[in-house]
Amino acid sequence: MRRDVRILLLGEAQVGKTSLILSLVGEEFPEEVPPRAEEITIPADVTPEKVPTHIVDYSGSGRSLPGARPGANVVCVVYDVSEEATIEKGLGPPAPLPLVTMGLQPRVPIILVGNKSDLRSGSSMEAVLPIMSQFPEIETCVECSAKNLRNISELFYYAQKAVLHPTAPLYDPEAKQVCPRPTLSAQPP
């Protein structure tokens, strides 16, 4: 089992990456939100999987993303559900999602995070489903609200789970089928 999990939050400016982190840690929406949160570590004894979790707020330009991504075990791509433009800019080319998945190895799981659900009635899933089908690395999509503390702990739980209990070796999303059980050689190597 892994000794720790490193979560990278990225997305367009003002989508709420920093607010999500501060709402998780402070268990309330911050009155003042800095431009970026410092890296935080959630101790093992307060996480469901009993593994320390490091959360990084990435606020650089998309062009420098490949240099930031290698340390991440999972990437959360955050968009604002109340602004359709952030879905297109944050998830479509030439934005972060294609950069995260562009042939960098190893492939890391991706969680799509629709923040600010308190500002929109209904769901953004119709706009996100076509994107999810394009990228097999996407584990799930979570809609949340940093302001109302809705689905904040679930978001980070799903991110941690994507690393600690990956579906990739078991399910091939491109073939849309369960992978065959690997055969073990009867002879020693």
Rank of each mutant, 00 (worst) to 15 (best):
148 N>Q: 06
85 A>Y: 13
84 E>G: 06
137 E>H: 00
83 E>Q: 15
41 T>Y: 07
113 V>C: 05
42 I>D: 09
91 L>Y: 04
181 R>Y: 08
42 I>A: 05
91 L>K: 00
40 I>N: 14
128 V>Q: 06
5 V>L: 11
10 L>W: 07
83 E>F: 08
104 L>G: 14
155 L>Q: 09
117 S>V: 03
67 G>A: 12
122 G>M: 10
63 R>G: 09
12 E>W: 05
78 V>G: 00
50 K>R: 13
144 C>D: 11
25 V>L: 11
144 C>L: 10
21 I>F: 05
173 P>K: 00
53 T>D: 02
6 R>W: 03
54 H>T: 12
151 N>T: 03
13 A>C: 15
53 T>I: 13
10 L>R: 13
100 V>F: 02
3 R>S: 08
178 V>P: 07
160 Q>L: 13
68 A>T: 02
81 V>L: 12
111 I>C: 04
65 L>R: 11
137 E>Y: 03
171 Y>E: 09
4 D>F: 04
7 I>P: 13
140 T>C: 13
174 E>S: 08
185 S>K: 06
133 S>P: 10
187 Q>W: 11
20 L>I: 15
138 I>Y: 12
26 G>F: 13
163 V>S: 03
134 Q>P: 04
170 L>V: 02
141 C>S: 02
147 K>P: 03
33 V>T: 00
100 V>R: 01
20 L>S: 13
98 P>M: 13
71 G>T: 09
126 E>G: 03
153 S>H: 02
66 P>R: 14
152 I>V: 15
58 Y>L: 12
159 A>P: 11
63 R>Q: 15
50 K>T: 05
75 V>P: 01
23 S>E: 07
126 E>C: 04
85 A>D: 09
77 V>K: 07
36 R>Y: 04
81 V>K: 01
68 A>R: 10
126 E>V: 01
26 G>Q: 14
24 L>E: 05
95 A>L: 12
176 K>Y: 10
167 T>H: 04
63 R>F: 09
3 R>Y: 06
23 S>H: 05
179 C>Y: 07
130 P>H: 08
131 I>S: 10
12 E>S: 14
69 R>W: 05
60 G>E: 14
101 T>C: 02
75 V>H: 00
126 E>D: 13
90 G>I: 10
170 L>A: 06
28 E>V: 10
90 G>P: 10
126 E>F: 05
144 C>R: 08
172 D>K: 09
49 E>P: 05
112 L>M: 04
93 P>A: 00
159 A>G: 02
79 Y>N: 10
55 I>M: 12
101 T>L: 09
